[in-house]
Simulated assay, not measured.
Amino acid sequence: MAAVYKSISKQKSSAPNGKEETDNKPKNKQRVLILTSRGVTYRHRHLLGDLNALLPHSRKDAKLDTKTQLHQLNELADLYNCNNVMFFEARKGKDLYIWLSKPPNGPTVKMHCQNIHTMEELNFTGNCLKGSRPILSFDAAFDKQAHTKVIKELLTHTFGVPASSRKVKPFVDHVMGFTMADGKIWIRCYQIAETEASKNGKAENEENTQEPSIVAPKSGKGETNVSLVEIGPRFVLTPIVILEGSFGGPVIYENKEFVSPNQIRSDLRKSKAGRYNKRADGIMERKAKKSDLGLRTGATHEVDELDDRVLFA
């Protein structure tokens, strides 16, 4: 009881005018549920593991057996006390779709994931502390359209680690960049590398990076070079549809320019079949022409009465 009284008295003494501080600032309480469907490949599993390691406020769950009744994810999120869901849906063992949702009221965005490169296969030199908070860097193109603003808000809630999370560490040592180009969202992750500059103006341990270094003054120790070193993973997201509810509800945005990978594969098969059909038709036409001219072995050619061989026999 004495310890409780002492802590309360410290709070009162630190407050201005002896009054208790009132927290008018809203607390950022975000928790993400990450899970996959059946049929994911090893690359999809490694990407999920990388994202789970980068997000200390996430909770990884077992695979979901169904791909049609996605409303069950709302019950799972409520069960695990999560207000964000990141669902990896695999189709035909090739295609990966990522759902980002805010249960129980929504909205929900479905995106097609391409160009996946995990941390293990990239082997970048950068590294960050596990459990640290990232700086989210968004492209200015996210604020130009209504649907990109919704996507930016969902990405912020999903990848933005709150300071009050249980597993978070009080460090900010990496940056997550979200760039909008060609109607796709390009996601990269960089480590913030800080090195002390020498007397000659060069860093003692210079990192091999393509990013421009930023010189920032440091009190008492001269200047320091701050650079960004990529650590992975890399992947590209193409927005497909935005739903008003959580894994359901009316469609509020649809990407008309998106072509499903199934349609692309079907068009490729049809183009190959068309080339074969043209080749087969050409072969049949040549055979018919040769048979008409009597050039084929065993083919009988009818001799006309006005033929030169009959008239001048």
Rank of each mutant, 00 (worst) to 15 (best):
M180R: 09
D173Y: 01
I185M: 12
H71K: 11
S260A: 09
I185L: 15
G245M: 11
T108W: 07
R286Y: 00
V251L: 09
R31A: 08
Y253G: 04
V236H: 07
E21C: 04
P170A: 08
H117S: 11
V85W: 07
L76T: 15
A181M: 04
V172A: 05
N24P: 03
N127H: 09
P16V: 04
G249N: 10
D308L: 08
I242N: 11
F142C: 00
T68N: 15
A288D: 07
R43Q: 11
S132G: 11
S7Y: 14
G49K: 13
L122V: 06
G183N: 08
L311N: 01
N81C: 10
I8Q: 13
G282K: 14
T156Q: 14
L243A: 08
L73M: 10
G177F: 02
S198Q: 09
Q191D: 05
S14N: 07
N205F: 10
S198M: 09
K290C: 10
R309E: 14
D78K: 11
P162D: 01
F247N: 06
R279C: 00
R133L: 12
R286W: 00
R43H: 04
L51I: 02
M111F: 06
A193M: 01
E230I: 05
K287W: 00
L154W: 15
K63S: 14
I240G: 04
T158N: 06
K67V: 12
R286N: 04
R269D: 08
S101H: 03
V226Q: 06
Q11E: 15
F312N: 07
L306R: 01
V161Y: 01
E285V: 03
I185T: 12
S198V: 06
H71F: 06
N127D: 06
S14Y: 13
G39R: 08
R269G: 05
V236Q: 09
D281T: 01
T209K: 06
S58G: 02
A163G: 11
H147M: 08
F178Y: 15
H147Q: 14
K6D: 12
L64K: 09
E196G: 01
G160K: 04
S227V: 05
S260P: 01
R59T: 14
E257N: 10
I135S: 08
E285R: 13
T224S: 12
C189S: 01
Y42W: 03
F171H: 13
A181P: 00
G248E: 07
N115T: 00
I187T: 08
T68Y: 12
F142L: 01
G93L: 09
K149P: 00
